[in-house]
Amino acid sequence: MAPEYALHGRFSEKSDVFSFGVLLLEIMTGRRNGGSERTEDAGTISEWAWENWMEGRGVELIDPSMRDTCNPLHAMKCINVGLLCVQEIMDERPTMSEVVVMLSNETATVPLPKKPAFTIYRRSQILRDHSNNEVTVTNVEPR
Rank of each mutant, 00 (worst) to 15 (best):
Q87H: 06
T95S: 12
G34Y: 07
N52K: 12
H8D: 13
E60S: 10
S124M: 11
D16V: 01
R67Q: 15
R32P: 07
F11C: 13
I79L: 14
S36F: 11
E60C: 04
R93Y: 02
R93M: 03
S15Y: 04
P113I: 02
M28G: 04
M1S: 09
R31V: 00
S65L: 13
C78I: 01
P116H: 00
L103F: 02
R123Y: 10
W53A: 04
S15K: 05
I120R: 15
Y121H: 11
E40R: 12
T119C: 15
S65H: 08
D91L: 13
V100G: 02
A42R: 07
T109N: 12
E106I: 06
A6D: 08
R123I: 11
S15R: 04
E106R: 15
P3H: 00
L25Y: 01
S46M: 14
E98F: 07
I126D: 08
F18S: 10
D63S: 02
D68W: 10
I79T: 03
N52P: 05
V140W: 07
I120M: 14
M28A: 15
V100M: 06
W48I: 12
T119Q: 11
F20Q: 08
Y5Q: 06
L83W: 01
E106L: 10
R123M: 14
E47Q: 14
R122S: 12
R10D: 10
T39P: 04
K77A: 07
R122N: 12
F18Q: 07
L127V: 05
N132S: 14
I120P: 06
H8I: 07
H74N: 15
S46I: 05
F18H: 11
